[in-house]
Each structure stands twice: as C-alpha cells, then as structure tokens.
Measured scan of single mutants.
Amino acid sequence: QNEKLANELKSLLDELNVNELATGSLNTYYKRTIKISGQKAMYALKSKDFKKMSEAKYQLQKIYNEIDEA
C-alpha cells in the first residue's frame, strides 16, 4: 500500500513544474501554496511515512484543482 501511494505521489510531483508555471498570472497564494505543497511531498516521499504521504498527496491534488479552476 505504501508503494502504491508513493507512486501516486511521485506522479503528482512530476506535474509540479507544469502547475507551478500555470500560477504565473495567478494570485501569490497559489505560487506560495504549490511550492510549499511540493516541498512537503518530497519530504514525505523521503520519510516513507504513510500518513505524511497521504496528507501531501491530498494537498497537491487540492492545489492542482484550485489552479485548474482559477
């Protein structure tokens, strides 16, 4: 289960640069939040902690959705 979550989180991290570029014309909230979420996700992957990875995955998905809707 950890392996599956780690792969999903890696996949979301692969999209980080594209989504970060998409924040160029948006409010600074999005820029700041996506950077923080990305850092948390990288830390969670290194720690291999299921709870941290779950939270990081949720945060990344949430900010990606917010950027898409903005």
Rank of each mutant, 00 (worst) to 15 (best):
G38C: 15
G38D: 00
T23E: 04
N19P: 04
G38Y: 14
S37D: 03
I36Y: 08
S54N: 08
L5N: 00
A70E: 05
Y58G: 06
L21C: 10
E3V: 06
K52G: 04
K4I: 13
E8C: 13
T23Q: 05
K51A: 10
K10D: 02
L16K: 02
D68W: 15
N19I: 15
E3P: 03
L13N: 00
T33V: 11
E69L: 14
L26I: 04
N27A: 12
S54M: 14
A41E: 01
R32P: 01
F50C: 07
I67A: 02
N19D: 04
Y64C: 06
I36Q: 08
A70C: 11
E8T: 04
L9G: 01
K51T: 10
K46L: 13
F50N: 08
A6K: 06
N17Y: 14
E15C: 14
K57G: 02
L26A: 04
E55A: 09
Y43L: 13
K46S: 07
T23V: 08
K4R: 11
E15A: 12
K10F: 04
T28Q: 12
L21Q: 10
D49I: 03
K51E: 11
L26Q: 03
N7V: 09
L5H: 01
D49C: 06
R32G: 04
V18Q: 11
L12G: 00
K51M: 09
Q39C: 13
K52F: 05
I36L: 10
A44F: 02
D68G: 11
K35G: 05
Q39T: 09
F50T: 08
T28W: 14
L16N: 01
S37L: 15
K40N: 10
I63F: 02
L26T: 03
N27M: 06
L12D: 00
N7R: 13
N65S: 11
K46P: 01
Q59N: 09
K31G: 06
E55N: 06
F50Y: 12
Q1G: 07
Y43V: 13
K52V: 05
K4M: 09
K40G: 03
G38I: 15
Y43H: 09
A22N: 07
A22I: 10
T28I: 13
L5F: 02
Y29E: 04
N7T: 12
A70L: 08
N27T: 11
K57F: 11
M53I: 04
Y29C: 11
N19E: 05
I67F: 04
D14K: 10
D14M: 13
S11D: 10
T28P: 14
N27C: 14
K62W: 06
N65E: 09
G38P: 00
E20A: 13
N2K: 12
K40R: 12
F50H: 09
N27R: 06
D68P: 03
M53A: 01
L13G: 00
L12T: 00
L13P: 00
T28H: 13
D49Q: 03
S54C: 13
S11Y: 07
K4S: 08
V18Y: 12
K10Q: 10
N27F: 06
Y30K: 02
N7M: 13
L12E: 01
D49N: 08
K46R: 10
L12I: 03
A41D: 01
Y64P: 00
D68V: 14
K4H: 07
L16Q: 02
K4Q: 11
